[in-house]
Design a protein around this nucleic acid. Sequence first.
DNA 1: CAGATTAATGACACCGGTTACCATAACGCG
DNA 2: CGCGTTATGGTAACCGGTGTCATTAATCTG
Lengths: 367, 367
Amino acid sequence: MTLPPQTQPVKSAADPVEEFLKRRKKATINDVAALARVSKKTVSRIINNSPSVREETREAVNAIIARIGFRPDPQARGLAFRRSFLLGLIYDNPNAQYIVNMQMGILDKVRGSGIELVVHPCDKTSDSFLEEIRDFVELQRLSGVILLPPIAENRQLIQVLEELAVPFVRITARHGDDNSPPIKTSQVVSRDRMGCQQAADHLVSLGHRRIGFIEGPHTYASAKERRQGFAEGLKAHGLDIDPEITAEGAYSFESGFEAGQKILSHPDRPTAIFASNDEMAIGVYKVALQMGLSVPGDLSIIGFDDSPLAARVYPALTTVRLPIRDMGRMAAETLIDQEDHRKHTTVFDAALVVRDSTAPVPKNFKP
Amino acid sequence: MTLPPQTQPVKSAADPVEEFLKRRKKATINDVAALARVSKKTVSRIINNSPSVREETREAVNAIIARIGFRPDPQARGLAFRRSFLLGLIYDNPNAQYIVNMQMGILDKVRGSGIELVVHPCDKTSDSFLEEIRDFVELQRLSGVILLPPIAENRQLIQVLEELAVPFVRITARHGDDNSPPIKTSQVVSRDRMGCQQAADHLVSLGHRRIGFIEGPHTYASAKERRQGFAEGLKAHGLDIDPEITAEGAYSFESGFEAGQKILSHPDRPTAIFASNDEMAIGVYKVALQMGLSVPGDLSIIGFDDSPLAARVYPALTTVRLPIRDMGRMAAETLIDQEDHRKHTTVFDAALVVRDSTAPVPKNFKP
DNA sequence: CAGATTAATGACACCGGTTACCATAACGCG
DNA sequence: CGCGTTATGGTAACCGGTGTCATTAATCTG
């Protein structure tokens, strides 16, 4: 009389895996090797997807790994590999929302991959700025670096990273197709220019002809791009940027306020103002309110960034949105997935977000 | 004929240190040991400020370390020590400014110390939330963890961290002296209650008697504290929170808008509203504008947080400021400097920031 | 000044993985 | 069927530090 085959074998207490689990100790590669009756080298091969392992062996070992919950120690692995499993995010940027969105995007990609994100703001005005970053990258043996604007444009910094031979991506508004020599690195690019063209289009289509402009700091690539985009947008309708009603700001609320005062005190004041970011646009709100101008009745305003401010002010600000989080995710992808270490560029579109701060020019407008 | 003693010895090319520097290789502890003619263990002792090293030896080795620019590899050190030199910042919080301020504070302390900050937002609604954090902390062998509200109040999470025996600090508004059992961990506490008392004081001193209140979510410790502080502030003047003109919000702009609608549609509407954060306060702005109420002429409003929004809206919002950055710095200090691993609590004051959204009750006020 | 005690230093294994290299088994071909 | 290949697994050394413990040098004691 034969018994039926045991479909569900009784886990005997002598099962070495069960034995191991009882000890509640963090598993090492040696434990896996011992339980699977192979050498640790073979386990290592399997962890690293090395091809020359028999399928049978691979499955058996993976089963053990899963059962005892083995996860290789990143420090030990890093030491042997001579690189860590850390991504560095380097920036010198006061805009909190931008940074957090970027972090979220990066983390979208990184989560669960065993790679972690180390944030490293810096002060580009410090003398030791470059040394600090060199130390950081070299010491931590980062597996990749993400550079945010404006320091993503810093040539010296780029050179340092190239010397260190660390993979890095620059986030930038610059497509590198104007006359200054393009910077040849991996990059994630936003079409700021496109967004500004749309802003200009939108205003012109509402009947505005006299449009003030508040630029960002000339040292910022985004500022140049936005200016150029806005100029192109106007040009398409036979218009030009008028220097009389243009001012340079510092991307800050206060500088927007001052620029707004300058522009709106012009005897022939514009019926609309395009500010290169939301902070400055909100600064113009304050000027308008103080001058008794209604927005958008007397003055249309457009900003850029779609910061949380934009939707919360009254009237809600028409602005240009960039997919910051997506860009962050793509930056991480560029560093992690790109097997070939070629320079890789991705471009993201901007989108006009029409809210309540823009309206047609009043019919009987006389300044 | 004797030559004068060479005060400035010519660095002969045979100087082993010079020789070493010529090779432009990252220095290891072995290099230091060889050049200083001591064992690597002695160098290790010096790096770690071990006491039993002769002063003479220490100086000689330190000189070599400085000359060749040796810095111990954190990965190797971490492997041997069985802990990394990373601090983890764990949060589940949508407020960008808060997070960035906190990060800056932590980095103020951490910068230059060789410790780096790993950010780890998480989703407390996910099933695997606790497992993810456990993996993160265990795998990275973090040397410390900082918990931000609201998950700083999560008992299960706290238990996990205690099991892992990782040092951690909670950032919280809760002093732990009410009836629910206090959570015994290191913490950095803000006196939210105090700020709210001041807010109540301020409004009452302006003549307001009928004051609306928008609470935060009941699950947040800060919400409870703020409510309690506001209530205490009113009580000091013989007033009470009136449930008729109180609403619960979600700390968001939209929820503030809704709460404002509810409160301001009350037949006997209040002359002032205290919102438990700025987002909700700005939501009330929108309601007021839509109802044609002037702020602060018809309605005074106070918020909480002193977010960037507060100073930029019109009229600028009176609010309560918390020294977030300082708290971040203190959190890092608590983890890094505290030799004894006793539970350590630090308390920070809140401060009322009076701007333009609060004014005396109009003399002839009739609802 | 011998012997005991203490301070300073070094030898060696180890942290938990990896690579370099060698040994064996399986396979193809003339 | 012998031999060169290719697949697979093992061994030892190594990544760059630290812990343990033994050893040597310096200081103390009677």
